[in-house]
Computed example of a mutant assay.
Amino acid sequence: MSDAPPGTHLARDLTFYVLARFALVAVVAAVLLLLGVPLLVALAVALVVGLPLGLLLFRNLNARVTAGLAARNERRAKERARLRAQLRGEDQ
């Protein structure tokens, strides 16, 4: 997509991923409703089928979100280590 390092678009990627998975559940529920399945049953089946199916269908988006979260956690760990060293009075 772009040359941006992982994690720079974490909020955007996470939003797209969540919306895509909810949309998939909605599509599965709509198909079941068109087939005459009651609403609550259609929603329950759509959740059970749609959420795991989303892991497969949106694999690339999931990988981007995972990379972004890993990069953010790494930055936070480095900042935490820097602050702890500063509190101990260590020079950097």
Rank of each mutant, 00 (worst) to 15 (best):
L19N: 14
L33A: 14
P5L: 13
T15F: 15
V28K: 12
L61C: 03
V27Y: 03
R72P: 03
L83C: 01
A4Y: 06
A85W: 00
L10D: 01
G50D: 03
A30V: 10
D3Y: 02
V45A: 07
L35I: 00
V27T: 15
R12M: 12
E79F: 05
Q86H: 02
T8L: 05
R82T: 06
S2G: 08
G50W: 11
R80V: 03
R59H: 14
V31C: 12
R59E: 10
L69G: 03
G50A: 08
R64V: 00
Q86R: 08
D91H: 09
F22Y: 12
A11L: 14
A63L: 08
G68R: 09
L69I: 02
V41T: 14
N60E: 09
A85D: 12
R75W: 06
T66A: 13
L47G: 14
P38A: 07
L43Q: 04
R76V: 14
R59F: 04
L53N: 02
R12W: 13
V25D: 05
V27A: 15
A44G: 14
L33Q: 10
L35V: 02
Y17M: 06
R72M: 11
V27C: 11
Y17P: 05
G54T: 11
R76H: 04
A23Q: 11
L47T: 12
L43N: 14
V49T: 11
L55S: 07
F22D: 14
Q92M: 00
P38V: 02
A44D: 06
N73Y: 04
L34H: 10
D13P: 01
V37N: 10
A77R: 13
R88H: 03
R80G: 00
A29W: 05
R75V: 04
D13W: 05
A23G: 15
A77G: 03
R64S: 01
R12P: 01
N62E: 12
K78G: 03
G89K: 05
V65I: 07
A42Y: 09
